[in-house]
């Protein structure tokens, strides 16, 4: 464990807590893409298949459980909770995310660490996570002004993978036999997708104006 990875995990956790706060405090999921939340739930379920077979540390196991439970709870809440689901922007959340699923799985069959069930699903989760934010970013562009909590949610979600890139650079220089090309390249793509969001987020923070993504 290094400071970059720990900071990244804490930012990831923060993004989930901010999203939970938004949904439970405002009893609304307006501006949140259900499709992105479904993709994230799949990412965690596909990535943590080794939850009960490979014990790494208490921290690792607890965080995996937190990510799986929180992501499925958010999807459940946006679909089933009578009050919350009324505020879901169904007509705006129209990104065809099944293409992202199919493309990620196809790529995982071709490019993986080892052609085993667990490794294919691990690579699938890595590729899917890189593109999972797309429905959310498209929804933000369509829904015009973005409320603070939603903006903070996306910001922390983007920042966490940027810290993971620092973690991979650090591990590359400090550990022998360290190579995580699949995660690293995918992480670079993932962070790059947030580039324009980060730019408009910084502008809104600097000018102290409402965050607005150009359509």
């Amino acid at each position: 464990m290094n400071i970059f990875r720990f900071a990244g995990d804490m930012m990831h956790l923060t993004s989930i807590l901010v999203l939970l706060l938004k949904i439970y405090a405002t009893k609304s999921c307006s501006g949140i893409s259900l499709k992105t939340q479904e993709l994230y739930a799949l990412v965690f379920l596909a990535r943590y298949l080794d939850l009960f077979t490979d014990f790494i540390s208490v921290y690792n196991t607890i965080m995996k459980l937190v990510f799986i439970v929180s992501s499925t709870a958010i999807v459940w809440c946006m679909k089933r909770d009578r009050v919350v689901r009324r505020s879901y922007d169904k007509q705006l959340d129209t990104f065809r995310h099944y293409f992202l699923l199919a493309a990620s799985f196809a790529l995982a069959l071709l490019v993986n660490e080892k052609f085993t069930f667990q490794e294919i699903f691990w690579a699938f989760s890595i590729y899917l996570e890189a593109v999972a934010i797309l429905p959310q970013l498209v929804l933000l562009q369509r829904s015009g002004n973005v409320d603070n909590l939603t903006g903070q949610y996306v910001f922390f979600l983007g920042a966490y993978r940027a810290f993971y890139i620092l973690n991979w650079i650090y591990r590359y220089f400090t550990e022998t036999h360290f190579s995580r090309w699949i995660a690293c390249i995918s992480g670079l793509v993932q962070t790059a997708l947030y580039a324009d969001f980060f730019y408009y987020y910084y502008i809104s923070w600097k000018n102290n104006t409402k965050l607005k993504l150009p359509a």
Binding site: D50, D54, N60, K64
Partner: peptide, 10 residues
């Protein structure tokens, strides 16, 4: 032969 890599990251 490097040891089989387990995914120790989240």
């Amino acid at each position: 032969e490097p040891e089989p890599k387990i995914h120790d990251e989240l």
